[in-house]
Design a protein around this nucleic acid. Structure first.
Lengths: 188, 188, 188, 188
DNA sequence: TATGAATGAGGATTCATTCAT
DNA sequence: AATGAATGAATCCTCATTCAT
């Protein structure tokens, strides 16, 4: 792929993401092209139809999520610490947006698989956390992940904001008091 | 209003709600009319444009929410118990759907007001709960309400499902250990 | 016909005329009914369809015009005086509006006939005027009538306004011959 | 603009003008597109809505009128000769149609201005004609222009037809005074 | 390869007319 | 006879997609 073609493709994806975030998923292809500084024809050269573009955006985010998840999972620390660290990274990903975008997509194997794999990874982390005592054990690991996703996929989620923190803390196991912030982590 | 007209109106609203839930907010007016068993003209007689219909659906749900909130708030019990009880009622309301529908609506004073009032009510309840010790005090009442809303506005939320329960439990105050169900409150 | 029915019919016609004048011919039947203080059903009881209503309005005006024309023609005076007098009466009739309304009507025998008869009457008057010397003789009587109609069917025509007067005066016969083309400006 | 696009645009405008003339202003956009040999989408690419198309048609005609008016006014001859020459040119313009089309347009600054400028030009010409004696002086110049417009904006006006000629002649000044009111008919 | 014009199916909305109350 | 709700064809307009330049 020529350098300018790659650049165009990247600008399209980035511009579309911004537009979707700013004006909802009902943005027209024409507007997306314009935001990327190209003509519609070019947009369609890169993405044969709208779904392909949306899917690409989703795929990027989910791929990043999966990568982060696996990377963190490969490191050291308790299960809860892993969840917490992944959550921090998630704040930089447009997961809330992607979640809504996906709902208007027809069935898509790639996304399905990415989703399943992230989920499997997270469930494994949760389960491990429950075994190492860092994650509360009175929930199914899937429920832990669902709560984790809620903290992570909220619209305006920022790394370490109160609401995420409360949920994350709520997932902790053990006698350690749940939500009280550590002295050096003042609640915002 | 004539009886048949009211019946039609109700069938339209109910049918639209179902369709939106089943197929997303991009359903056509034609389909909505058909689902209600009327012709488009009838749909438009009751709602001069799509926004009016969507707004009506949102208004109903928010009105119900406000009513429940106030009714419960007027009863006895701790702040947390009130939140818990309201949450149970919310499970019957299409709040998750309404939340997404509202985003594609132009500014709407009525909805704005309903939203503000429900919120104010809930914040008051949260604050009261913090004073009576039933709600954890290390959060701003607004944050409590945000968490409450997350539990309440989830897509498939059912009264008393694990995830809601965890979040609600996470809002508890006091020495009592958070998530462990009290003997008389079996986790569902 | 019951008294209230006749009253309704009259209010409908009068209201429609006003609305057409104020907002153009594209007014809806609903609006016309409302302006008359009745429901659409009643409007349709009196006029089986829109065309019938419009035709009725046109018919009224043309009938009035014909009556005036014949009445004046039966009196004494020169041809030009008759034209002048008819023109004064026309100022009270919505002829300009009716002229435009008629264009959107399908073929209509009654209107056709009324039109033809008024025209015939006017042509006769013009011809008589040419014989009695009161109307300029260098035009076909039909052309005289066309000019007369222009004076008479203008949008804001008022009895005796300057513009009408000029045209009417231009139709005068007599020794003064302003209308004779100068030698170097041959009449086409 | 690409050659084919310009050709389409021109065919649309020309076709629409013909259709309006033939079938009134209520022609559908679909029909207009078909008459121009394009699809509706193309029609809308050139004119974002019906009003824009109608306005374009009006603008063309009024622009032509203004150009003619100014061009003629810059030449030599008496005021009346200028009016007469402009009238000849007007016969080629769809002024009658445009006049009715304009009534269904929302406020439009460009058209407003064009109208005002043509009018101002014509009024100036009329006034000059009154000073040079070629235009009758017993009318306000605005009234002269109104009469001029009547001659010029008639439905089937052809250059130099009798009716126009009579009106134009009626605007002449000079010693012969057919327009002098009879003593018992004071001019208002 | 990029451009942007053209296509046309689809969706919102209007309104003349019909019909149940 | 009046009312006003219901119908549905017709119209405007949008936008994903295709294609000529």
């Amino acid at each position: 792929m020529r350098a300018d073609a790659r650049r165009n493709r990247e600008r399209i994806v980035a511009g579309a993401l911004d537009l979707f975030a700013a004006r909802g998923s009902a943005v027209s292809m024409e507007d997306i092209a314009q935001a990327a500084g190209v003509a519609v024809g070019t947009l369609y050269r890169h993405f044969p139809h709208r779904h392909a573009l949306v899917a690409q955006i989703a795929e990027s985010a989910l791929t990043d999520l999966l990568a982060v998840t696996r990377e963190v999972a490969a490191g050291r620390g308790t299960g809860w610490q892993h969840l917490d660290e992944i959550a921090r990274h998630c704040a930089g990903l447009p997961l809330a947006l992607v979640k809504t975008l996906i709902t208007e997509l027809p069935h898509n194997d790639v996304l399905e698989r990415l989703n399943a794999e992230s989920n499997a990874s997270l469930v494994a982390i949760a389960a491990r956390g429950q075994r190492d005592g860092s994650v509360r054990a009175d929930l199914a690991p899937e429920e832990v992940v669902e709560l984790f996703s809620m903290a992570t996929c909220r619209a305006g989620a920022k790394a370490g904001d109160s609401v995420s923190t409360v949920i994350l803390d709520g997932l902790r196991g053990g006698g350690t008091t749940r939500a009280t912030p550590a002295p050096d982590e003042p609640r915002r």
